[in-house]
Amino acid sequence: MSLHCENVVKTYGGKDVLHDVTLDLKPGKIYGLIGRNGAGKTTLLSILAAQNPASRGTVTLDGEPVWENRKSLAKICCSRELNANAESGLAAMKAKEYLRIAATYYDGWDKALEERLVKLFDLNVKKKLGKMSKGMLSMMTIIVALCSRAPYTFLDEPVAGLDVVAREQFYKLLLEEYASSGRTFVVSTHIIEEAADVLEEVIILHEGRILIEADTQAFVDSAVHVSGKIEEVDAATAGLEVHHPETVGRSKGVTVFLKPGQRVDGSRDVSVQPVSLQRAFVALCGEEAAR
């Protein structure tokens, strides 16, 4: 029982956007798909939901192919980040209409929940999507995802347009729905701060490759920040996986990713501090930016 993709490659115009992605999404978990803008998050999700064809590789749900298979597709909802700019046909569509079509096409649509969320978010559904703010469009993404009741639900950047209060509200709603239904959620985001505690598993996608797929807590616990005198830091972290070094004068700070059984040499005069998921992510994926 899982949604599985194997050796998925996606090529656009001769350029590989996804390189050989293999992933296994187990039922009843909240996954976070995190990565920088352009890392391939949307492409990966849309291939998992058979919205886009993969250039190579397979996607299966409980062993059955997802592509052109209504039985599998009925269990998947990939709620897209709506981009209702002027050239998109969606701009002229009313929010109400979009929700009506979603209600027609998702078998398990929860109308009562839809009404509750529209009220909670104070959305004017008579508005055209093209006239909605980024935050309102994020709310539409969230409403479709939660109301679809699909066993595998993907939310593509659901918090990108939300302010911090609305983000917290969204995560509470997500947890509530998760607790009552046990559905599998995949939340793609580049805003990691509040997401870290909600996501049970974290998948870090960087330049079309999966760098990390792990229990969020275990991954965060494996990362530490080591700082002190340059020589002491180098000695304490010798042989370890070191990322994102920063030096100021004689002082140096690095982020270390410890493998099971490894530890920072405690006899050295260095400070060892825990790091947040956000810091760990920046250490892994932000090296070009730091250089």
Partner: peptide, 20 residues
């Protein structure tokens, strides 16, 4: 022509098969 550019991708995004 509008259907082809709007409803076809929209329905695909909501999990309908290409055949359907």
């Amino acid at each position: 022509s509008g259907t082809q550019t709007l409803y076809v991708p929209l329905l695909l995004s909501m999990g309908e098969t290409r055949r359907n």
